[in-house]
Write a protein that binds this DNA or RNA. Structure first.
Length: 711
RNA sequence: GGGCGGUUAGCUCAGUUGGUUAGAGCGUCUCGUUUACACCGAGAAGGUCACGGGUUCGAAUCCCCUACCGCCCACCA
């Protein structure tokens, strides 16, 4: 047996091995019509930056499944790629420009987009390189990007299809607006932030009776400039006689009606709600029910519009101050209460989201949600852990239409064309004089097509036919609604078939304190640094070891040290076997002979661990699987059996050595070692491959990567 | 406000359907320089399984309550 270096050096081994694998072509599946393939489409990392620990875990898990299936002889495809990540990436590039003292308007749209493409090229290369560093066995020949040529075609085609079916419509309604990013946001792109907040009680006089008032309570007094009604609960006795009367809107002197609506809680605040259909989601709904006039009182810059009288042009927060001052001086401010509450902020830049009226494009969700609920309820698509099925169904049951247009520059432009007053949807330009919409699509519109657009859809490709649907999708719980649900209805809509049968939600990686790992907060740990320190295998094994049933994974670096020590143990056990074998070479089939109790015991233990290990991997119990194989290898194989073989293969050799026992013990050592490497390979591909290459087995496979699996 | 998850050794966590002395890694302590490995071996200490109650012959495990931590969803202005 070829001799191994004295200590395992991951840096020397990893790059060399990875290159050999890549050149071998085994990352690409051999299509075999008789076999059902195993397919995973990578959750495409955003080209916003580098990979974090969550990616390292997510991709280690995928690689474990992929490598195991490949070794089982299944045609196995792991499609890699990246996501253009609309707002997120644009925001990054804007930040970069800002540091250079520039902004996107200085550059102009065309130049700015060029800059974004440069950024994309840089980070895409980094990300794909990082995936290789941790050992991911993706089919790089099928690498995709959500804005590559074919993919862009798929996106436009999807838009057209939805449009033809009547699912896409344009409408003027209230949407989330980020006054800083200057774009609309979907509900899922806003986050909540704790805000101290106050509740201001404001007196609205009755028309024709300056001495009678109705008091309303609001957290956003500046929006009163756009009020078109005051609402009370229909069951609220205090106001029964007043409903239908007119009130005078202070500061503006406009008459507005007092209406009754169930959405008003009579026990909250003053029991009367000022209704601003142009600046609040609830108020919009009330306005729709009562056919109220809609006044847009705050514009896209977060400033008061011309309808705001003397406040016109003021920033929304300045306007608030001014409005309060004026109310105070007019004696209309009854009282102020503290009210800690949540406010919506932009998920990118944390600016207060301004709900406002805007003409945007929407996807009608009712039918799509219905079909998705159906496949979830039937169990055609299953979750691990299973509780996410119910959570998802609940969300779908209450879903609102999806605002898909964004007023940013980076993304897929809507295939919407206008000429004078005419509007047309068309993948290609309809001809001279037609102008394409400047809006781009929500980045998730394209990600939703990932399981089939990566395979060539809308073209009827061989890949699409053979590899769709995918087998499993593995992701973080944070994007179940943003991504998983949308892939399901997109799959059902365009492929008439679910995109995958299983969804595995991997744990979310937190730091030791249980806080989100965030680069900007300085709480992140760079996985590449860990690779540098412990080796890629140790990073993978350490992460997998910590992937138990819990939804959170509090990253413990200790575990990586443990994993690194384990790698060293594997290495040294292999060195020992190598030493014992000398120049022995295994010919023919690997044999195991039970001569002694120790032989019997280790064989039994190996079979038990192999069985359990397979079961655990099938059920996504990675931590359990890692722990068991660790225990077997270290404490059963090394501590006990290897020690025993020091007797069975005595050194120095006695006068009359038991040649048969010696030979068969060598076979046994080789048998357990090789089969252990097979089992370990999906988790720790580099070191196992390196050792496998030295095993003196005649006619063994070119790579452990394609060695036969042990079940 | 609704829903979900967590709380087990000093630290990070296992514990599958309730069943003999509750496990692992790290850390600590004792001993050990043997033909791989000191990133080693042999052994030890260390836990009223968050709190309180209930079901049961038997509960870390099932049920209820409380506390703290975290996540998701949501239009109490």
């Amino acid at each position: 047996m070829k001799e191994l270096a004295k200590a395992y050096n991951p840096k020397e081994v990893e790059e060399k091995i990875y290159q050999a694998w890549e050149v071998s072509g085994f990352f690409s599946p051999k299509i075999d019509e008789k076999k059902k393939p195993f397919v995973i489409a990578i959750p495409p990392p955003n080209v916003t930056g580098e990979l974090h620990m969550g990616h390292a875990l997510n991709n280690s898990i995928q690689d474990v499944l992929i490598r195991r299936k490949r070794m089982q002889g299944v045609p196995t495809l792991w499609i890699p790629g990246t996501d253009h990540a609309g707002i997120a990436t644009q925001f990054k590039v804007e930040q970069k420009l800002q540091k250079e003292g520039l902004n996107k308007f200085d550059l102009g749209k065309e130049k700015f987009i060029e800059k974004v493409w440069e950024w994309k090229d840089e980070f895409e290369a980094t990300i794909l390189g990082q995936l290789k560093k941790i050992g991911c066995s993706c089919d790089w020949s099928r690498t995709r990007f959500t804005m590559d040529e074919g993919y862009s075609k798929a996106v436009l085609e999807a838009f057209q299809n939805y449009w033809d079916k009547g699912y896409i419509y344009q409408g003027e309604r209230i949407i989330n607006w980020c006054p800083s990013c200057k774009t609309s946001l979907s509900d899922l792109e806003t986050e909540y932030q704790e805000d101290e907040g106050h509740l201001w009680y404001i007196k609205y006089p009755l028309a024709g009776d300056k001495n009678s008032f109705i008091t309303v309570a609001t957290t956003r007094p500046e929006t009163m400039l756009g009020d078109t009604a005051v609402a009370v609960n229909p069951k609220d006795d205090r106001y029964t006689n007043l409903v239908g009367k007119m009130l005078v809107l202070p500061l503006i002197d406009r008459e507005i009606p007092l209406i009754a609506d169930d959405a008003v809680e009579k026990d909250f605040g003053a029991g009367a709600l000022k209704v601003t259909p142009g600046s609040d989601m609830v108020d919009w709904d009330i306005g729709q029910r009562h056919k109220l006039e809609v006044i847009k009182i705050i514009d896209e810059d977060g400033k008061i519009t011309k309808d705001g009288g003397k406040y016109a042009g003021l920033d929304r927060f300045e306007a608030r101050k001014k409005v309060l001052e004026d109310l105070e001086s007019q004696g209309l401010l009854e009282k102020i209460e503290d009210l800690p509450h949540n406010i919506s902020v932009c998920y990118r830049c944390a600016t207060h989201v301004e709900p406002l009226i805007s003409k945007q494009w929407f996807v009608k969700m009712s039918e799509l949600a219905k079909s998705t609920i159906e496949v979830l309820e039937k169990g055609d698509v299953t979750f691990t852990p299973s509780n996410w099925t119910k959570v998802s169904i609940d969300w779908l049951k209450d879903i609102k239409d999806w605002c898909i247009s964004r007023q940013i520059w980076w993304g897929h432009r809507l295939p919407v064309w206008t000429k004078d007053t005419e509007t047309k949807v068309s993948v290609e330009s309809p001809g001279d004089g037609w102008v394409q919409s400047e809006d781009v699509l929500d980045t998730w519109f394209s990600s939703a097509l990932w399981p089939f657009a990566t395979l060539g859809w809308p073209e009827k490709t061989k890949d699409l036919e053979y590899f769709y649907p995918n087998s499993v999708n593995i992701t973080d719980r944070g994007i179940i609604n943003l991504w998983e649900m949308r892939m399901i209805f997109s799959g059902l809509e365009f492929m008439k078939e679910i995109p995958f049968k299983e969804i595995y939600i991997n744990p979310t990686v937190f730091n030791k304190e249980g806080k989100r790992m965030s680069k900007s907060l300085g709480t992140g740990i760079d996985p590449l640094e860990m690779v540098d320190k412990y080796g890629a295998d140790a990073l993978r094994f350490g992460l997998l070891y910590q992937t138990t049933g819990t939804p959170d994974l509090k990253f413990a670096e200790d575990t990586l040290q443990m994993a690194k020590t384990f790698m060293n143990k594997i290495w040294n056990a292999s060195r020992f076997v190598s030493m014992k074998l000398g120049d022995y070479e295994q010919i023919g089939e690997l044999k195991f002979t039970e001569n002694t109790e120790a032989d019997k015991e280790i064989k039994k233990q190996f079979e038990a661990v192999a069985k359990s290990y397979n079961e655990n991997l099938e059920r996504y119990r990675f931590g359990q699987a890692a722990e068991e194989i660790y225990h077997f290898f270290w404490h059963q194989f090394c501590d006990v059996y290897i020690e025993k073989t020091k007797e069975q293969i005595p050194y120095p050799l006695p006068e009359n050595p038991d040649e048969k026992l010696i030979k068969e013990t060598k076979d046994n050592l080789l048998y357990i070692l090789k089969n252990s490497l097979v089992l370990l390979h999906p988790m720790i591909p580099f070191i196992t491959e390196e050792i496998y290459q030295t095993l003196p087995i005649e006619g063994k496979k070119e790579f452990l990567m394609v060695e036969e699996w042990v079940s």
